[in-house]
């Protein structure tokens, strides 16, 4: 495939290639995560009185976790998993069924949930690598999984309650159902995911990720086992999604297929990640925060929500393929250097 006019521009930075994780100097990344943690920890002081708003804030953290996991899978290793919602859903339903039907203690079921999603995520990567599927086919295969999972939930009424969903009994009467504590539980998860992300990227695994993103063939030639690191990312990311999905089930006390569909999870998570900047540490959190806030502002125009998401998706990908946060940052530093050079 070639471009139709010969004045082909040099292939410009693409949404996928744009965000290679940059090793930030010293402890900068950890300080930034700590600062984010402190800011977010103060949120309940502001909105803690309102059960609704706390619910919104918790959802925001849930989406931040989705976006961080997706960032690890897609941003770090170029695997387009269009099954973010489904992997979280697998965790949520597995944990709920295991605790409520089989009577297992619910913390254990969350481990089971994470393990199951980890297996599935790893399997996706394994298949994609073994059959060298490429970004697009990986996307389509995982999308068919999302849709099949959705249909399974709708069809297996006895187990899943179908469209109406199921009430999650385990976890009730614990602090997870109170107004404010679950917020801090989710916040801890987000911070752990962020720290994990940075630690992972500073290890030899991160080295391999960078190499395989920059040039897969070259990475392979220099001895990076591309397949293995892809599977790591798929499995770890899958496990993170399954865990946070299960946690959500016990906090919310109710799950339904609609909570985990492609349209309701994958697309927003993608928008948030692209907005924040693929491959950045804090991008997913910033994206989730901005879009959760926007969603709240637009809540009264819920029918316009879909349109707004669509417009944003297009505008973001066309104007800021590297993420708004990064664009702003480089804009600001550009201004700064210009001002400095004027002095």
């Amino acid at each position: 495939m070639t471009t139709d006019d010969h004045t082909a521009e040099p292939t410009s930075a693409t949404p996928t290639r744009a965000g290679t994780y940059r090793r930030e100097s010293g402890q900068g990344a950890f300080l930034a995560i700590a600062a984010t943690g402190i800011v977010l920890a103060l949120v309940p002081i502001w909105i803690g009185d309102s059960r609704t708003l706390m619910g919104v804030a918790i959802t925001g953290l849930l989406f931040a976790s989705y976006a961080i996991s997706f960032n690890l899978i897609f941003g770090s290793t170029n695997q387009l998993f269009l099954a973010v919602g489904a992997l979280a859903g697998v965790g949520a339903y597995a944990s709920t069924i295991a605790s409520d039907r089989l009577g297992l203690p619910f913390p254990l079921t969350m481990v089971i949930a994470a393990g199951l999603s980890m297996l599935i995520g790893g399997a996706f990567s394994w298949i994609a690598v073994r059959r060298s599927l490429g970004i697009i086919f990986t996307g389509i295969v995982t999308l068919t999984f999302s849709l099949a999972f959705d249909n399974l939930l709708l069809g297996q009424r006895d187990f899943t309650g179908g469209e109406t969903g199921i009430v999650v009994k385990a976890g009730s009467n614990t602090f997870l159902r109170q107004q404010i504590p679950p917020y801090y539980v989710f916040l801890s998860v987000v911070l752990i995911y962020l720290v994990g992300y940075v630690v992972l990227h500073r290890s030899h695994v991160g080295w391999a990720f960078r190499a395989l993103r920059d040039d897969e063939v070259a990475a392979e030639l220099t001895g990076v086992d591309v397949a293995r690191y892809r599977i790591y990312a798929g499995a770890i990311g899958g496990g993170m999604l399954g865990f946070v999905g299960a946690l959500w089930a016990h906090v919310e006390g109710f799950i339904s297929p609609a909570t985990f569909t492609f349209v309701h999870v994958d697309v927003p998570a993608l928008v948030m990640l692209v907005f924040g900047g693929i491959g950045t540490v804090l991008g997913p959190v910033v994206g989730a925060a901005v879009f959760t806030y926007l969603g709240e502002v637009l809540a009264s125009f819920s029918q316009l929500r879909l349109i707004a998401d669509g417009v944003l998706l297009i505008v973001l990908f066309l104007l800021f393929p590297q993420g708004v946060v990064r664009a702003l940052r480089s804009g600001v530093s550009g201004l700064r250097t210009r001002r400095r050079s004027q002095q």
Binding site: V267, Q303, L304, L306, D309, G310, L313
Partner: peptide, 12 residues
């Protein structure tokens, strides 16, 4: 990605 956006706008 762009046409998903367009689909959202049309559906919305």
């Amino acid at each position: 990605l762009l046409t998903i956006g367009v689909a959202f706008i049309i559906d919305g």
